[in-house]
Simulated assay, not measured.
Amino acid sequence: MIPPEREQHCSGQVSTVALRYLDHEDDVLASYTLMRQLRPQLDSAQAFVQRWQHQRTQGYRLLALWKGTQPLGLAGFRVQDNLVHGRFVYVDDLVIDASCRSQGFGRMLMDALKAEAKALGCSKLLLDAAMGNALGHRFYYRQGLLATALHFSMMLP
């Protein structure tokens, strides 16, 4: 379901970009700096790889938008099923390199996620966004997502 390579602009240059899954540790290591833009609490590339390996056992997949050997965007997701939503894709992580934002790369990743969700027999795509992430909220609305609930959480002692 992953679309073929496309020409796109990044930092003012035309380049060919491709979507592909990160299935090897080397690719995950290559994407650490990008993921850290979204998840600054990841204190090392090795910690990221260990989390990725563990989450893979729970169905987590990382889809990356590449320009050559450089990842421009990442989408981490998993298929879930519950009584509220039925079968759905939950997007854990979505990030575009800060130098390449507002150039269509986020839309490309979202389109790929929507297509993948349909191919996997899912009826919904869900994600959480921080309350203070107004730019992210605007992007998600433009992609057709609606705010349908508040997500509550707490740290346990």
Rank of each mutant, 00 (worst) to 15 (best):
D128H: 05
L94N: 07
R6M: 15
Q50P: 05
P4S: 12
L34E: 06
L156D: 05
D128G: 02
F105K: 10
R87G: 03
L63T: 08
F88P: 11
R36H: 15
L34M: 06
S102R: 14
T57E: 07
T148L: 05
L135H: 13
S15P: 00
R20C: 08
I2G: 00
K124H: 15
Q58R: 03
Q46W: 10
G59L: 04
G121F: 06
A129P: 00
P71H: 11
V84A: 00
Q37E: 15
F105P: 07
L19N: 10
N133F: 14
A115M: 10
G59I: 08
E116M: 11
D27L: 02
L34D: 08
Y141T: 03
S31N: 10
Q50C: 06
H9L: 14
W52S: 00
M131S: 09
V79R: 14
R87P: 01
H137W: 06
L109W: 04
C10K: 12
R56G: 01
C122D: 05
D92N: 14
G68V: 07
S44K: 15
I2Y: 08
V28Q: 08
Q41P: 01
D92I: 13
G106H: 12
A30Q: 06
D92E: 13
Q50D: 09
R87C: 10
G76W: 00
E116C: 13
M108A: 09
A30I: 08
L150T: 03
F48K: 00
A130L: 14
L150S: 02
V91S: 05
K124G: 00
D111A: 07
A115V: 05
V84Y: 02
G59V: 13
H9M: 13
E25M: 04
T148Q: 09
A30T: 04
S31P: 12
T57F: 11
D27H: 07
Y90D: 05
M1P: 04
G136L: 03
S15Y: 05
